[in-house]
């Protein structure tokens, strides 16, 4: 094979500059040619990763597809920022995903992996203990801020049906945690005196960021996975056990008080969690990961204890 290594089929990763994107790039770049797309600069980028600092909504993004032979796209350029205006949030996530999927169809990318989240089902008191992939995506009924995340998931789902020749994989991992991850669950678990809702102690599922990165690699490179998958880490554990493991002394707040109080704190920027996030520490939103486990022979590398402790960098 005298092929020019810079011309072999590439894996395109959107949102590569985030913490999860960097974890993924680190796992993948030794075996695959990677092209990254992100609005943000990629700090500490390995030299063999080609980087395009641009917005998916811009015409220029299409050039990446026109000029390269692409074997797979991993789309995780999805923003979750409760402080961003809803309009911008929605446009970036939904329009960005729509454009990306158009390019994938136009340039016949054989594999498309979209990173969604188990949060699309939404925590609720009448949830079953383990939601399967066909459960309705109810998250927006209690938390309108996640509407575009559901839309992204459904766009990918529609794409899966419309393009049977393209292998589309939608991954819905449980709460992602890790030493560098700055999403709501990791930030919450880093608080020394976190709130809990008095009398509520739901079972929760966490997954280590490196396990999610591995799952995305499996989804992108293996031929079997197709369709929607819940991705579960080492299992489920009561919220109180996590706080105990991390040595936190949680503050029990009665739930009727917690919502308005957090609303005020959020408004005056004294807290960074919008009140509907409280549902996650009150009700169940656990998923059944058996389909993924079976189809790709999946086992997480990180134990429950290691996954929990990873939020404090251990």
């Amino acid at each position: 094979m005298n092929q020019d290594p810079s011309k072999r089929p590439a894996v395109v990763i959107t949102g590569i500059s985030g913490n999860l994107g960097r974890a993924l790039a680190k796992v993948l770049h030794k075996h695959e040619r990677i092209i990254g797309i992100d609005r943000r600069p990629f700090v500490g980028r390995p030299k063999d990763i080609e980087m395009h600092q641009l917005d998916l909504r811009k015409k220029k993004a299409e050039d990446v597809f026109r000029k390269n032979d692409i074997r797979a796209v991993i789309h995780m350029g999805i923003m979750h920022d409760p402080r961003m205006s809803e309009e911008e949030h929605h446009s970036f996530n939904v329009v960005g995903t729509t454009r990306l999927l158009e390019y994938c169809a136009r340039y016949k990318v054989p594999k498309v992996v979209v990173l969604s989240s188990a949060n699309v089902y939404g925590p609720s008191p009448d949830n079953s203990n383990f939601l399967t992939e066909d459960a309705p995506l109810m998250a927006a009924s209690r938390f309108s801020g996640v509407r575009d995340l559901i839309e992204v998931d459904m766009l990918a789902h529609g794409f899966f049906w419309k393009h049977p020749h393209i292998q589309t994989v939608i991954l819905r991992p449980v709460h992602i945690v890790g030493p560098t991850i700055k999403n709501a669950p990791s930030n919450y678990l880093r608080l020394n005196r976190p709130w809990v809702l008095a009398g509520f102690d739901p079972m929760v599922q966490l997954i280590h960021v490196d396990d999610v990165a591995r799952a995305m690699v499996e989804a992108a490179l293996r031929p079997e996975p197709k369709g929607v998958y819940n991705v579960v880490g080492p299992g489920e554990v009561p919220l109180s056990s996590i706080h105990r493991e991390l040595g936190h002394s949680a503050i029990p707040v009665p739930h009727p008080v917690a919502r308005p109080l957090l609303g005020l704190l959020f408004k005056y920027r004294l807290a960074n969690f919008p009140p509907p996030e409280l549902d996650h520490i009150q009700f169940l939103c656990n998923v059944d990961g058996s389909r993924w486990r079976k189809d790709v022979d999946w086992t997480p590398r990180f134990s429950m204890r290691d996954t929990i402790r990873s939020v404090i960098g251990e």
Binding site: N129, F130, M203, G235, E236, V237, P238, S241, E245, S303, M304, R305
Partner: peptide, 12 residues
Amino acid sequence: GNEYGVDPFGFN
């Protein structure tokens, strides 16, 4: 039960 003494449904 797992290492935290609960089964997947939360029984302890």
